[in-house]
Computed example of a mutant assay.
Amino acid sequence: MLAAVTHAFTPHSHDSAGKTDSALESSSRGLRVLAVSFVVLMVTAAVQAVIVVASGSVALLGDTLHNLADALTAVPLAIAFSLGRRAANRRFTYGYGRAEDLAGIAIVLLIAVSAALAGYEAVTRLLDPQEMRNPGWVAAAAVAGFAGNEWVARYRIRVGREIGSAALVADGLHARTDGFTSLAVLLGAGGAALGVPLADPVVGLLITVAICFVLRDAAREIYHRLMDAVDPALVDAAERILAGVEGVRRVGTVRLRWIGHALHAEVEILVDHGMSVVRAHAVAVEAEHRLIHDLPRLRAATVHTDPDGPDGADHHEALAGHRMAGRRIR
């Protein structure tokens, strides 16, 4: 009997098999995106490399190197997605989903390096303009570079948002920066064809500024994930779901956090203090069930059940000095 009471009023965890399968499918989708985008960007870089040899364009060489680097960002992300599929163990009790956030940091650093290289090349060409051969071919290669990168960017960002992967979204933003660099090459080639060689470095500087804005967005995305930030609308939705469970009188603290591209929840609900242990347990299980199935991308929930009443009773008096940090945030 004591064991039953303890179980009813301590955290209870439920991990839906369907949600686990969904999480594995999300990782599989992420790996497919990385494989497809890797092939597209490697083909794009190969086409550009051939034209670099024919034209001697330093700008196109830089763009080709950027595309190659962008393709290689698939490597840390693929490792992260593969690690995320591993089961939790006694050392990594929440699993390996955080590997995606580490990959996101690497991607943000690559975007920063891309911005620095683009700015450096633009300033160098501004101080020492380079003659460009076959500007028509260079322009065609620039269009190919932009098209390849923009397609990959849209693909990565769309799937990244669908599966909740901040790292994949950041990688899509990185691809977009390389597409901007390709546009700089295109405009530079147009300037060279019109007899305005300084057009290339000037546009390159403007594109560097655009890359910095993309860097800001990607860094903010990864920073929020590292700091366990979630959309407040998700917290509101979780509270509504819990409040709608029969037997729940009030909703206490609701905490959500991303681990990789899956959400985890820790919540408190209050039930009638006269409710039986068996009934209180059933309410907790139903609350978990509703959360896991109604809150998008939530893989697991831990529900703590507290008695509501009698008036004046403090069931956590012994913990009062330890629970200040756990106050509910409105």
Rank of each mutant, 00 (worst) to 15 (best):
T124H: 13
L168V: 10
E131W: 12
A118F: 01
V143W: 01
V196H: 02
R279F: 00
G136R: 02
G190K: 05
S27R: 11
A210N: 07
G104N: 10
P135A: 07
V283P: 02
M227G: 03
F9S: 02
A74K: 04
A282K: 04
V58D: 04
A170Q: 04
L110T: 15
I79K: 12
S182Q: 00
L24F: 09
P129G: 08
R220N: 10
L77R: 01
E131N: 06
D70V: 02
V283Q: 01
A284F: 04
S182T: 05
D21Q: 14
L270P: 04
R32T: 13
H261Q: 15
S13L: 09
L41K: 02
V251F: 01
L83I: 06
A49Y: 09
M275P: 05
A4V: 00
L72Q: 11
R85K: 15
A282Y: 02
E100D: 08
V235Q: 03
I207N: 04
A106E: 08
E239T: 12
G191T: 07
D236W: 11
T93A: 04
R255E: 14
A265W: 10
R255H: 14
Y155M: 11
N149A: 07
L61F: 14
R90C: 02
G195H: 00
A147C: 12
A118Q: 11
N149S: 10
L72G: 09
C212N: 11
A243C: 03
V235N: 03
T73D: 07
V303H: 02
A218C: 06
L319V: 12
P296I: 07
A282F: 04
A166Q: 14
S27D: 11
P135E: 03
A118L: 11
S276E: 11
G321Y: 13
E221F: 08
L256Y: 05
Q48D: 01
G326V: 06
I259G: 13
V285C: 01
V52D: 00
A237D: 14
W258E: 07
A184R: 05
R86V: 08
A46I: 07
L298Q: 04
A219L: 01
A170S: 12
V245I: 04
A35E: 01
F9Y: 15
M1K: 00
I157L: 06
D217V: 14
